[in-house]
Design a binder for these strands. Structure first.
Lengths: 174, 174
DNA sequence: AACGTGTACTTGCCTCGTCAAGTAAATGCT
DNA sequence: AGCATTTACTTGACGAGGCAAGTACACGTT
């Protein structure tokens, strides 16, 4: 599988600058918003997000797997987050009625209150750190573009390490 | 400190969609690129990035703290990454000549070779997952905007949790 | 020269989230 | 019906990286 066969265009300077700047945002923005949220509302972003999705769901409840997809983390990750939320009393687990394997995570009143407390702080942080800088730009177009970024069907090659010697991460898994 | 005092504008639908889509990209894009890089070149993104910066530095060497800033992680995080890289033989540590407290991380020949192997794969992944979707858009303008996002001086409020009960993360630190 | 203060890095501890394996329930095949 | 396969979720083991505390050196003051 000759990997030189594909069209090989190095990044232009503009593209390169864009990639580097976005990399920074990728790392720094979540930390900034999380820090704001923790400081001002005592709620980390990793917990705010599922509460938010639950509050919007019909019956304020969602299946674990739906919630995981909505929050873009794995199901196993969501198990742990919900365990935390349950411990706080903000969420309750209930066996799904129509599928005995499934569980619903349901937002409690306490959870909703907590979310409503945190919401203005979240909003302020997102405005300050992100949204307000895009004043006057075509957000809809940008959003449409972002929808294609790292889209779920862009990794159609399950071949394991063609030319790489076993020096990488997988070697540590012996 | 009345937090209701600041201008309270909820997000418009466009803004909201943008925030959600970007949140997804924030989580998914690094995982996608990392997975590509690991699969195709056996090198995680967290190691590729410092190698890249080192290769561009004069003398192929940088101070630990410079490197940490360049990679947007903490100095302590960089200590661990460089330890890994040193174990692979791709980087060497050398005491700084002009400052006895400082250390230089220097890219070895093996490290450079590894980086050059991985570079086309990185490039391909970044194109496929990100850059090529922005065809025809004003990348320079976007980059300029991104530079303001989560900028280092947007957190001018070191007041600890005004109205939040100690239910949050900090309470676990007793 | 001696000492306090600041800086560069490392280390211990912790949290988060992933993967792989395990469990339990649903579904399909015969 | 009985059994293999798939699906939904949980759990164990682990890696990554953050914060706070520790160490070692530099620097300014006296």
């Amino acid at each position: 599988m000759p990997s030189d066969q594909r069209p090989f265009r190095p990044l232009t300077p503009s593209e390169e600058a864009f990639v580097r700047e976005l990399s920074r945002v990728l790392l720094v923005l979540p930390r900034a918003v999380d820090a704001d949220l923790v400081r001002a509302a005592g709620l980390p972003l990793s917990e705010y997000t599922p509460l938010m999705h639950l509050s919007e769901a019909p019956g304020r409840a969602m299946r674990m797997s739906e919630l995981a997809v909505a929050c873009n983390i794995t199901l196993s990750g969501m198990t742990r987050v919900v365990t935390r939320l349950e411990k706080h009393g903000w969420v309750e687990r209930a066996k799904s009625a129509e599928d005995g394997r499934g569980w619903n995570a349901a937002l409690t009143d306490a959870g909703l209150t907590r979310l409503e407390q945190a919401w203005p702080e979240f909003l302020a942080s997102v405005r300050l750190n992100l949204v307000d800088h895009f004043e006057g730009q075509d957000l809809d177009r940008l959003t449409a573009t972002l929808r294609h970024v790292a889209a779920p069907d862009h990794q159609p090659k399950p071949n394991p390490a063609p030319d790489a010697p076993g020096t990488g991460r997988e070697a540590a898994r012996t």
